Computed example of a mutant assay.
Amino acid sequence: MSDNTPNEDDLREEAKERMDEMPAETALGNADPAGGSDESPEDYEAEYGHEGGS
């Protein structure tokens, strides 16, 4: 592993922070009122773009 490769703990922490920022959604992709955010998943993607995937 090279020196500039993040370690697993750092990656887990960054992933947790990103998940906390994302709006909650139901299995159908609708905003989840119990999730604590009134932002819809579509609004989030419009503002932040779709990051991730392959």
Rank of each mutant, 00 (worst) to 15 (best):
A34Q: 12
E8H: 00
E13Q: 09
Y48R: 12
S40P: 01
M1A: 03
A27C: 04
N7P: 00
Y44F: 15
M19F: 14
E21F: 08
A15Q: 13
G29K: 06
A15P: 02
R18V: 07
G35E: 08
P23W: 07
S37N: 07
A27D: 14
G53F: 10
A46V: 06
E25K: 13
H50Y: 07
E8P: 00
M22L: 12
K16T: 06
R12G: 03
K16D: 03
N4E: 02
D38T: 09
E45D: 09
P6A: 07
S37H: 06
N7L: 07
S40D: 05
T26R: 13
S2D: 08
E17I: 12
A31S: 08
S37Y: 04
E17W: 09
E51Y: 10
P41G: 03
T26L: 11
P41F: 04
R18G: 02
S37F: 07
R18W: 12
S40F: 03
Y48M: 12
Y44H: 13
E25P: 00
E42F: 05
M1R: 06
N30R: 10
E39H: 00
Y48G: 00
P6E: 02
G49K: 05
D43Q: 15
G29F: 06
G36H: 09
D38C: 00
S54P: 05
E8V: 03
K16F: 06
N4S: 11
E51H: 15
A31D: 01
M19K: 12
D9L: 06
G53P: 01
E47M: 09
E51F: 13
G36F: 07
A27M: 10
M22E: 04
E51R: 15
Y48W: 14
E39C: 02
A46E: 14
Y44C: 02
P41N: 05
A15W: 10
E39N: 01
D43V: 03
